[in-house]
Design a binder for these strands. Structure first.
Lengths: 153, 153
DNA sequence: GACGATTGTGTTGTGTGCAACTTAGTTGCG
DNA sequence: CGCAACTAAGTTGCACACAACACAATCGTC
């Protein structure tokens, strides 16, 4: 614990800081998207599509709902995205037998095989950030706390 | 400088960390957007529109180009956004006299007046993040470094 | 078993974000 | 001057992201 921020931080600075953080977050998110776009171009995936594939590669076939929970995306975003992945021949939809409302997403053989080609992507991204492992952990921690706090608000 | 991260950090952990950071950034960015949406609903602004208004409130009339530089947005995003702000009666477009290619964006009276109603927004956002001022500074610093590094890549 | 509430998915409409292209105006160089 | 290169803004097309709504299947309660 440091001192309780001795000079009580004037309003003006607080407001500027808020703007700067929001700007930074917005800009950083888009900068990541941009670099991922390059890294994923050869695979024919967009960044959100890659995130969905990661979930499927790691945890196997699962309903739309659980994919959405992990990525914080709703059906309005996932339905058309999954349709594009299906058109690309990477996933397959299957109505669940137990619950006819549920649609289970499976990887096709092509989807499984794409994993190999995607393996070098994370290391490339990691290098592109220019941060140390410790800094990445700090960043992840702060972002996680912000997201939780904002979700509660 | 800390030690050079003595146990050389296994590949698997690095990859997971990269995913977690990207997930976190993506999620945090959208969580911010969601809370801003609520905070700005009464003003009739979206978050990116609010960012543009902030630039105009702080730095006065200026061409589309400089707005884009500050927000890292190109004309493909700004042109329709500014058109919507114009339709809402908040800004005015004016062809520059010296350089006919350039369009200067001015605030209308309504646009100026909206500033008063927007004043409480940053404090509300700041509180919603649940972070201390020091943590916000750390976050801003890390995000800035990541963005610079990614832009170079 | 009947029926209202809930749940999982999909659709529609609006607003970014960005690549690629177009148009009009400006600049530089022979 | 004349013309190519460049620049600022706008347009088009595609892919998120999300609110609001639609629909069918399921569940809970009686």
């Amino acid at each position: 614990m440091t001192r309780p921020t001795s000079p009580p931080v004037p309003d003006a600075e607080l407001l500027r800081l808020d703007h700067q953080v929001c700007f930074s977050l917005h800009a950083a998110s888009r900068a990541f998207g941009s670099v991922y776009r390059d890294a994923l171009k050869d695979l024919g995936l967009t960044y959100p599509q890659y995130l969905v594939m990661l979930v499927l590669w790691e945890h196997g076939p699962q309903p739309v709902k659980t994919i959405g929970e992990q990525l914080r995306l709703d059906s309005g975003t996932l339905s058309p995205l999954l349709k594009r992945l299906e058109t690309a021949g990477l996933v397959r939809r299957e109505r669940s037998a137990e619950d006819e409302r549920s649609v289970t997403i499976h990887l096709t053989d092509a989807g499984e095989e794409l994993r190999e080609r995607a393996l070098p992507v994370p290391r490339r991204m990691l290098a592109a950030t220019g941060l140390t492992v410790d800094e990445l952990r700090t960043l992840r921690g702060l972002l996680g706390r912000v997201t939780s706090a904002l979700d509660d608000a």
